[in-house]
Amino acid sequence: MKEKLTREEVLHVADLARIDVTEEEIEKYQVELKQLLNDIEKVNDVEGYDDDMMVAPWDDNTTLREDVPGEMLDPKKVVENAPKHTGNYIAVPVVITENESEGA
């Protein structure tokens, strides 16, 4: 079993997780993440279980909510906790171009 992730693997997960990593950290994570993944790899040795999956130990099925409006926040309160805002809007650094918007 290899003992380190590659640099690229670390950079890939750091990108997925949106966490900046320094050169030093890359080396550290190459070892640490690999150790955790080696632990996890053990599930592949487990046998004898059936295909049923359990997402969560839910007691009931979902009870739907009535479509009735409730209280909403004052826009002032919405922007109060935001590090940056302009008027009633929350502001972020410019998002490259409109075309990039992934939308829904």
């Binding site: 940056k84 009633n88 410019v94």
Partner: peptide
């Protein structure tokens, strides 16, 4: 599924309306 919030792109920043 759920819709996203609306972004307005300005020259120096992007404004978010939820």
């Amino acid at each position: 599924e759920e819709d996203t919030c609306k972004s307005t792109h300005r020259k120096d920043k992007t404004l978010l309306d939820f």
